[in-house]
Design a protein around this nucleic acid. Structure first.
Lengths: 244, 244
DNA sequence: GATCTTAGTCGTCTGCCTGACGATAATCAG
DNA sequence: CTGATTATCGTCAGGCAGACGACTAAGATC
């Protein structure tokens, strides 16, 4: 087998970009980092970086995730490929194809960006996506490159995926209450859910939740049972997202 | 803005591969082409090719689709990005990242592969995916590269997507009957559906089907109403896929 | 032309799930 | 002790899906 003729195809740079979502203060937030160099210097962007010559795409995503947040997948967080973005003009310097990945993580301590805490932050996705074109004073400027599109796609994926899978538990700590899980759904969907119907639904779906036996009052009020995520990954029938 | 330092990142070849699905003879079939050169010479593979320097990923997919089948998207067929595959070992020659796309098309005339009809065919996906490791006499050998995985992912995407979207109509000609649409679901899911409940469901879902006024007896039996696909893309509530 | 076969279409019934919402339980703050 | 807060259980009505009976309208066969 002869190698490819290098002149037979155009060379591309391949990167991974990360949409890292979490729920903080009852709002869906995404991790963003401040760009230190042009283009888009000083603007917020999604974390990411080049894929190395010897690593798989998911390995590259996991490595970038660990570098940016200290988070390891398989440690409660969920990592999956989202989509690939390859518009010829998406990077003004050269042809870059970016394989975006989606990460769902529990509420974390402050992010770190290679030791520079000022250059990484959690921001509500509503804020990051509010590209209203006016009044872009610093922190409200649109994300660099096409990262606004990528983030929007990631948010939409997360919103639909918690309907029919148990992925919402990836936003929760290892042990959580039904109320905490409900607040995850409410934050991701941006709606209010009936606590009684939600409780009936999630506790009645086999394999979704496993009681640990403990209780907690960390949310105030009557003590609530603690649960772990069950083995089921697909919810059948799914959780229903209220209309609009 | 200075260009990237070419030594700062490894160069990749980027390709698009196509999972083109259709329903023929009551079976879900995929388009495959015979490889004319090493590696995997003589083996069946998914159609695809290099992304050009000045085209977007979806443009490259549409171009390859037209080259391989004469089919144009927006002409009844549906084209969407599927996933990206970038294992360092997936091509023995060099580092290739492939952005797979999924195409759903009505039953087409015989495929053409750059004029060489013998090197392209429709094959039932069950046959293409039957990598039982034994008795691989010619036509039943596993697909080249990781195309078996890509095809399996595409089939799974199609199977789940017709549950909650009106995409099944992409497998049908412009005008079709409820029975023809039901046979699409039966072929894609590999199950039998109750004709009466199916009829009630699809005709009762607003925006799914629009009657054209005509009827046909091309399936034999009593004449059936003809429909076009309605404007709705999302089915709510979804079609339910029977267990197992 | 009578009959059979094949599809298509309309109804009925029953059980399950969901949304709306009342009621009760258990903790904490004053 | 009282009120606020959250958790949890129950009830009821409406909607939808699965099972399946009944009828319709064409071509095929004798």
């Amino acid at each position: 087998m002869s190698p490819y003729d290098p002149s037979a195809f155009p060379p591309f740079a391949v990167t991974v970009d990360l949409v890292v979502l979490t729920v903080r203060h009852h709002a869906l937030c995404a991790l963003s980092v401040r760009r230190g160099e042009p283009p888009f210097q000083g603007r917020w962007a999604l974390p990411g970086g080049f894929v190395r010559a010897d690593e798989d795409l998911s390995q590259a995503a996991a490595r970038e995730l660990a570098e940016e947040t200290g988070l390891r997948a398989q440690n409660g967080a969920h990592l999956e490929q989202l989509a690939t973005y390859g518009d010829p003009q998406r990077d003004p310097r050269m042809r870059v194809v970016s394989v975006a990945h989606l990460v769902l993580a529990p509420d974390l301590p402050a992010p770190r960006a290679g030791g520079d805490a000022r250059s990484a932050r959690w921001a509500p996705v509503d804020t990051l996506l509010a590209e209203n074109g006016q009044d872009h004073a610093g922190d409200t400027a649109p994300l660099a490159f096409d990262h606004g599109t990528i983030l929007a796609d990631g948010v939409e994926r997360a919103r639909s995926k918690i309907e029919y899978s148990s992925l919402a538990t990836a936003f929760c700590p290892p042990e959580f209450t039904v109320g905490e899980l409900r607040r995850v759904y409410e934050a991701v969907w941006g709606v209010a859910l009936d606590p009684r119907n939600f409780h009936r639904k999630v506790t009645g779906t086999v394999g979704f939740l496993v009681p640990t036996g403990g209780t907690t009052t960390r949310q105030g009020g009557r003590p609530a049972q603690l649960f772990r995520a069950g083995g089921a990954t697909l919810l059948n029938p799914p959780m229903l997202r209220p209309e609009v």
